[in-house]
Amino acid sequence: MNAVISTLPTTHADTRMPLRRVIGAYLEEARAECLRYLRSPGFLIPTVMLPTVFYLMFGIVLGRANGADAPRYLLAAYGTFGVMAPGLFGFGLALSMERDNGLMMLKRALPMPPGAYLLGKMVMAMLVAATVSVLLLLMATFMAHVPLTAPQMLSLFVTDLFGVLPFCAMGLLLGTLIKGQGAPSVVNLIYLPMAFLSGLWFPLSMMPKLIQQLAPVWPSYHLNQLALSAVGLGQSASWPHVVTLLVYTVGFVMLAARRLRKFG
């Protein structure tokens, strides 16, 4: 009997994956995703340079001219501006490109754990957001001499770090909607006006009434209110903004998931 059994072709090494290897797959995916973008100057330079150079120009060089609180205000605002980009571009644009060039299809055919793709991109976006946040905090402290307490710094850092997530979700949805050559301009056409309309470049109080009233529509407005609270310029309670951002995140992800299931 034994002999008979041993001549049967062995059903292959078990296809059950030990938990350790599943976690390993998630880590490898995140590692590859980070490496890939860190080596890609076309992505990294604009996402890191834009907010820091803007802060240097408008927050530090011209900052004092705009009032004593300007460097502090713009630290929060450019932080928000800075963390929108890795979400919208690193997530959204990358997804739309990978749907276009076949990589997405290959990964769906491969036994990649379902969440690894999204988690890898999320980790990458958070890493870039953290970098932008730290750079801005260093510039604020050492170049603009904004007096910040340690809890304020930490609070802004955490706001920026997690603030990238609603924009990852928004990017995810955008990535399922747009495709091909025009995708970068579409993302920019959403990114830049949204930043302006949320009061990231000029305080909302300087803007027409209509824009002020429209501001709560934009996720970036809510993140900016949280960032302002973090540096001690808060004008209202934080929790409504946190809830709004959560609702946006969940909504974007659900819409994106529906589109991905339908159209791949």
Partner: peptide, 27 residues
């Protein structure tokens, strides 16, 4: 799987790509 048209991440090294894809499999 080897598909006809799939653009792999251009900045990753060959060894890194193999390591990444191999991580999806049990053995």
């Amino acid at each position: 799987v080897m598909l006809q048209s799939a653009t792999l991440p251009p900045t990753l090294r060959v060894g890194e790509l193999i390591r990444q894809i191999a991580s999806y499999y049990p053995a």
